[in-house]
């Protein structure tokens, strides 16, 4: 347990260097700013609809994935490049546990950064309109679900290639934000939609708008969490296999 905690702490810390944290922290304020600009003169249901639209389009579909992809790609990738990975894998820890710890610690770091955006968006809505804890909980849970799914994919990819961020962004912009809009049947392969569906499961009044966004996914928190756990299981297994079988030279 000591070794896993040490690895978790070190991974979490290395995922959040000061400059990156400040940069992403500032970017996280974008959805709140967009909401303030878009919801001007809107009240009640119209303001709430704007919140959901801004939340889905700029927060779930852009900011959450970008943060998760950037942090996830470097979780193992940077250690492979600077050759410190050998320092970790030559310890009495199963390589599947190393993989799982790396994924979870990176996911926690991405969740911590993305929480800034969720809180900021909720705060400006609450100040201008009314306070609804369900919105904040929904945003946080949905974001966490999406982050876990993204990080589970990108951590093993980052280990295999130096271009994981580019590939991840291509996946996001071309596949998720392009192809899946045209072919909603592929929505299960879009992590941010899984997160948005979890958001809708908690913030039920957002469901009518989210129905048009999440494709053929059922809006449900439980279902989304389950799907994210499948992503996690696949990511952990894949990372463990890669660490165990690939040369770490």
């Amino acid at each position: 347990m000591t070794s896993v905690l040490a690895l978790f702490r070190a991974t979490f810390r290395s995922a959040l260097p000061l400059k990156r944290t400040i940069l992403f922290g500032l970017l996280e304020l974008t959805p709140a700013l967009l909401f303030v600009l878009s919801a001007e003169n809107r009240t009640g249901e119209a303001a709430f609809d704007t919140l959901v639209e801004v939340g889905a389009s700029s927060y779930f579909a852009l900011l959450v994935p970008v943060v998760a992809l950037v942090l996830g790609a470097s979780a193992l990738g940077s250690e492979r490049r600077d050759q410190t990975l050998s320092f970790i894998v030559l310890r009495p820890i199963r390589r599947s546990v190393v993989g799982a710890t790396k994924i979870l610690a990176t996911a926690c770091a991405a969740i911590a950064i993305n929480a800034v955006g969720a809180v900021a968006l909720w705060a400006v809505f609450s100040i201008q309109h009314h306070t609804d804890a369900d919105i904040l909980v929904g945003l946080l849970v949905g974001m966490a679900v999406a982050v876990v799914a993204y990080v589970s994919i990108i951590v093993p990819l980052g280990f295999v290639t130096d271009r994981a961020v580019v590939i991840g962004l291509g996946f996001l912009l071309v596949f998720e934000n392009g192809v899946v809009f045209a072919l909603p049947g592929l929505a299960t392969l879009s992590p941010w939609r899984i997160g948005a569906a979890a958001f809708g499961g908690i913030t039920t009044q957002a469901q009518p708008i989210l129905d048009n966004i999440v494709g053929n996914l059922t809006i449900s928190t439980g279902g989304s969490v389950f799907t994210a756990l499948i992503y996690l299981a696949v990511g952990v297994s894949l990372t463990g296999l890669l660490l165990a079988h690939r040369d770490l030279a």
Partner: peptide, 24 residues
């Protein structure tokens, strides 16, 4: 290892402690 498999942002003591913790 031959290469510099060290964490430049850690102090020496943190690095050695990290190695110890990873081994339990």
């Amino acid at each position: 290892p031959d290469e510099d498999a060290v964490y430049p942002d850690m102090t020496g003591i943190q690095f050695v402690r990290y190695a110890a913790r990873l081994a339990g």
